[in-house]
């Protein structure tokens, strides 16, 4: 992992592990689900989120404040990691963080498609990726989807988006564009990984992530009963599914479930799968996928302490935390009870 005899990974991973252990745990969540939005904001002010809450506190309030603070803090934390890292570690982390570029592009596309205002879209962006502020401003200024495709022509999403734009014009739905963004992201993620045991494990983790994403998409389509071809959503690179079989699998949930439980992830997900069969609940299955992925990343982090995996596992855990706090805040605002909210959380 080290480049030129440096000891950068040790430094980065020690810091990341310290941050990881500072994330909210069971106990904090148990307190949080019983609080109102204002109390949550105050609670956050006394934690890692202090700077953001104070900076944004004068402009926003309630759930909005919490949400902006969460996004800002997440972006800051991930930029911090990039600041510390160097050499190959930097490269691998930067590649993974392009996930947020993909997220931002998709958010902008959806915003234009749905006719949302510039401010609304802006508040949902997470500036943790590689795009600089200027590019993001230009994306926000775009009013046509064609403009977005043009602006992105120099980036890694360029080629895929251009090809998908024709499909979009024909069909009038966003699916091909969003899919092109996802594909571009996962392709560059698996590209040029150095051969070795460590890289092999990392690749396995990425493949699991892709498999889970495919499984989730297929299940959602199967459940919604919408007339969509799951093969359009399919992301290459996983090991569990092939594009040709996913269409057939998505038509019957039971076959899909048995395929997942027979796979190498079967043991890890067995509890969730029986839930899915019994309770008919997609939500708990998706939560289980999330926590299985997190657990997988953690395990890898212990097997290869000086690789990129502990950092990835922190990134995932931080994302989960942000999702959890947002779910709590939104849930409390909507008047859900503590138990109902607790079911929504991914706690490890």
């Amino acid at each position: 992992m080290s480049t030129a005899g440096g000891s950068n990974p040790e430094y980065v991973i020690a810091r990341v592990r310290a941050r990881r252990s500072a994330l909210f745990g069971d106990e904090e969540y148990r307190k949080l689900v019983r609080m109102g939005p204002a109390e949550i904001a105050r609670f956050m002010e006394e934690s890692e989120y202090e700077t953001e809450i104070n900076a944004l506190g004068s402009r926003f309030s309630g759930v909005d404040l919490i949400e902006y603070a969460l996004n800002a803090n997440m972006a800051k934390q991930f930029n911090d990691i990039l600041d510390w890292a160097g050499g190959r570690l930097y490269d691998l982390i930067a590649r993974y963080l392009r996930k947020f570029d993909a997220w931002n592009v998709k958010t902008v596309l959806r915003g234009i498609y749905a006719g949302s205002s510039r401010e609304e879209v802006k508040s949902d962006l997470i500036r943790a990726g590689e795009f600089d502020d200027r590019l993001i401003e230009r994306l926000l200024d775009a009013t046509e989807i064609e403009e977005v495709v043009e602006i992105l022509s120099g980036t890694m999403f360029g080629d895929g988006l251009e090809a998908a734009f024709e499909d979009y014009e024909e069909a009038g739905v966003l699916v091909p564009l969003e899919n092109a963004v996802d594909r571009a992201f996962y392709e560059q993620l698996l590209e040029n990984l150095v051969v070795g045991e460590e890289a092999e494990q990392y690749r396995e983790f990425l493949e699991a992530e892709i498999d889970f994403r495919n499984a989730r998409n297929a299940l959602r389509i199967a459940r919604s009963g919408a007339d969509l071809d799951p093969a359009d959503y399919f992301i290459e690179g996983g090991t569990l599914f092939r594009a040709s079989e996913i269409t057939a699998l998505a038509t019957s949930t039971s076959e899909l479930v048995s395929k997942i439980s027979d796979s190498q992830y079967g043991d890890r997900l067995s509890g969730a799968i029986s839930d899915l069969e019994a309770a008919d609940s997609l939500i708990s299955f998706e939560r289980a996928l999330d926590s299985a992925l997190l657990e997988y990343a953690d395990t890898l982090g212990y097997v290869f302490p000086l690789s990129v995996t502990p950092v990835i596992s922190y990134i995932l855990a931080k994302e989960r935390e942000v999702d959890n706090i947002r779910a709590i805040a939104r849930g409390r605002e909507a008047g859900l009870g503590p138990d109902e909210i607790e079911e929504e959380l991914v706690i490890q």
Binding site: S7, E10, Y11, I13, A14, R17, A18
Partner: peptide, 15 residues
């Protein structure tokens, strides 16, 4: 000490 030192610096920077 090279590895331990840099890991220790990382940990101290956080706490």
């Amino acid at each position: 000490e090279r590895g331990i030192g840099s890991a220790a610096m990382g940990a101290i920077a956080e706490d």
